[in-house]
Simulated scan of single mutants.
Amino acid sequence: MTRPRQTRKVTLRDVADRAGVATSTASLVFSGRGPVAQATADRVRAAAADLGYAGPDPLASSLRQGRSGTVAVIVEERLLDAFRDPFALTVLDGLAQELDSMGTSMLLMADHADSPDNSLAGHAIDAAIFPLCGRDESPLVDHLVARGIPLVGAGAPLRDEVIHVVIDEHGASASATHHLVDLGHTRLAHVTMPLGAPRPTHLVGRDDIAGTVYADARERALGFLDTAPQGSVVETERADVVQGEVAGRLLLDVAPQDRPTGVVAQSDLLAAGVVRAAESLGLRVPEDVSVTGFDGVDLPWLDARLTTVVQPGEAKGRLLGDLTRRALAGESPASTPFEVRLRVGDTTAPPPAG
């Protein structure tokens, strides 16, 4: 019986031999990671086309290097919510730029309260990044630590194994609050991001805040209360404009003597919602009520330049990527402080007289 003749797989060496170049030169043509004369590159590509060679096998390459070439990027809750948040997008953009420069792909995943701890078990990854603030604990961490995978975060999860980009959330929130106090405000209020499982926007007390599971929201709330102990605090269901407006109405649609003259919000989107609530109630910003935000994102549709705590999202994402690069290179990078600053806009002023 005649057996069918088996065709040997074309290799990079075959292409190099056909083009009359070294295998290393042919490799540079396909990787794009080194200078090769245009005529030589054209000759290599022509030889590859003649032989039907599609390029190096990425799986084989990753196995030789002991790497998958993929980093898991894990965001809190639904991806839809992250993509609606302009600050989250800038962080992810900066991170994507850094990972791209490393030749690393991004596996984007959502991490929510009921995520199974084995949701990454079937994925080959080199590192995992938690680029947005989230819960103190993640069910994924134990699994990732057991696999020896480097972990990088932006303040959460709170584990010794995670290398963090660190922001002084407490101090940043206190600086915004001090700004209003220095302007003469005595009736102050705070609008927080969710502190735990989402609930309808509602008033909370200090005792409700201390044991909550979102470190960034908790520390910003405590920074406010340590500066303005008598201030009111409203926890929102989501950190968006709609819930900011709900919170604003809850605080401002009251008798004038009970109304705060200054509101410190934990995000620019929440602050924009408070501004909208004030305007819908016939109040002027900042003449009747001052409002501050957090993040420093571009809100061209808001007819005001927010006074806000600026944390450059793209730079933060790039730093997360750089820490990941160093960890994968065998270094032991330490958690790194990330500077934020208060930017005074036109939504704050001294309180109204009387």
Rank of each mutant, 00 (worst) to 15 (best):
L108I: 09
I209F: 08
D207M: 04
E331A: 10
V274D: 06
A46R: 11
F294H: 13
D50I: 09
V145I: 12
D226E: 14
A271W: 07
A22L: 10
W301S: 12
S101C: 12
T186V: 09
R5V: 13
V285H: 07
S335N: 02
G330C: 09
E245F: 01
I129R: 03
T40F: 11
W301A: 13
A110H: 10
D142K: 12
E169C: 04
A329Q: 15
T192G: 01
G32M: 11
L120W: 07
Y53N: 00
L12M: 08
H123C: 08
R276M: 07
S175C: 03
E287K: 11
D253T: 07
R64G: 01
G330V: 00
G262C: 10
V166A: 07
P300Q: 14
L63S: 05
A304P: 00
S138R: 14
P35I: 03
W301D: 12
S280L: 14
T104D: 09
G153I: 04
V263H: 01
T2L: 00
G273K: 02
R206F: 00
M106S: 09
T177V: 08
L92Q: 05
V310I: 14
A46L: 11
L320W: 04
R135H: 05
A16S: 04
L302N: 02
L63Y: 08
R43P: 05
P256I: 02
P350C: 04
T324P: 01
D216R: 05
A210W: 12
